[in-house]
């Protein structure tokens, strides 16, 4: 037992240490790509009417007139001091900009994950249980659609149906324009609850529904398939047959025997899908005009806001490393056969 936990500690520490070179390589790549990418950020800061002198002056203020390697070194120095720089456009600190957008994406991603887990697991399980009926075929089609469909398109369909045709749910944004939430933790839902702003809370939650379904459905495809095949496999296990022979009810067999045993790999899959979810959230946020990390990234790429793009990528990379690390650790604790 103790050898296991010390091994685990070693594993965690080495994984964390590995993040540093990974970040360094990533940052260098992003730095180069952004500069190789055509388009001068100055043209996005200064309007076309502004004269050449303004452009030159802005370029100087941003340090864009310095040699690339000098910009690179000073940027890296900043990063290791924990300073991601300032946005070219808003001049605001990149950390604080991210701090305002990240919680929203975290909220969306969490809800999306729940929807994905719910949809994927319930449909996958039921389809495995009824694999020989029409539902099995239907579910195969459904999960394939979920896996391959354009998020954009699906989000818009939902929007048109539920927000415009039937008007049962809001179409865009995270809060009605007449409401506001006092910022405490940055997570709008939590802040609304803390401040007792029920109206804002209800409105906010209602606004999360369609985006969460969009994102959740997108990710559910994978989970659905995996659950389906795992449950199918589990239902053929000898212990399921033995349980049936004891007269255990089918419902119990399905959930306690087949599903529960299938879930461990599904949980890992959720972790592995984290990156996919981030990319899905970019599109979802665009469709639903949600001011999260995704739309921030899109906007800052469009505007060639180098420090902000770099900052977002750093945060994404950190998030993905942390999440996969956590999943690995959880997995190690759940499954005693894994020795780290």
């Amino acid at each position: 037992m103790s050898s296991k936990s010390s091994g685990l500690l070693f594993y965690i520490v080495s994984r964390i240490l590995l993040i540093i070179p990974m970040l360094l390589i990533l940052l260098t790549l992003i730095f180069i790509i952004l500069r190789v990418l055509p388009g001068d950020p100055v043209y996005f800061i200064v309007s076309p009417q502004a004269g050449e002198h303004i452009i030159e002056q802005t370029r100087h203020e941003l340090g864009l007139d310095r040699p690339i390697w000098e910009q690179y070194v000073s940027y890296l120095m900043g990063v290791f001091r924990g300073d991601l720089g300032k946005s070219y456009i808003t001049k605001d600190n990149v950390w604080s900009i991210i701090g305002r957008h990240l919680p929203i994406t975290i909220e969306l991603a969490t809800c999306g994950l729940f929807v994905a887990a719910f949809l994927g697991i319930s449909f996958g399980t039921f389809a495995a249980y009824k694999s020989k009926s029409w539902f099995g075929v239907f579910n195969t089609i459904l999960s394939t659609i979920a896996y391959t469909m354009p998020v954009f398109w699906f989000g818009m369909i939902l929007q048109i149906l539920f927000a415009i045709q039937f008007r049962v749910l809001p179409a865009t944004g995270i809060l009605d324009t007449s409401l506001s939430i006092t910022r405490i933790t940055g997570l709008p839902a939590l802040d609304a609850l803390i401040t007792g702003n029920m109206r804002a809370f209800v409105d906010h939650v209602a606004r999360l529904i369609l985006p969460s379904i969009t994102l959740g459905f997108f990710i559910s495809g994978n989970i659905n398939r995996m659950t389906h095949s795992n449950v199918l496999k589990a239902l053929n296990e000898d212990y399921v047959r033995a349980a049936r022979a004891r007269g255990i009810k089918e419902r119990v067999i399905l959930f306690k025997y087949a599903l529960k045993n299938s879930l461990i790999p599904v949980i890992t899959l959720l972790g592995m899908n984290f990156a996919r979810m981030l990319s899905g959230s970019v599109l979802t946020e665009t469709v639903f005009s949600i001011p999260g990390m995704g739309s921030l990234l899109v906007n800052s790429i469009f505007r060639r806001d180098y420090p902000l793009v770099q900052g977002i990528i750093v945060v994404y990379a950190l998030l993905i490393s942390i999440v996969t690390l956590i999943i690995d650790i959880i997995y190690a604790y759940i499954d005693p056969r894994i020795r780290l």
Partner: peptide
């Protein structure tokens, strides 16, 4: 709003 489509959608949804 991100684009023409979502602007129009928000308007039609009464937002």
């Amino acid at each position: 709003y991100a684009d023409s489509a979502s602007l129009k959608a928000a308007f039609e949804a009464g937002e």
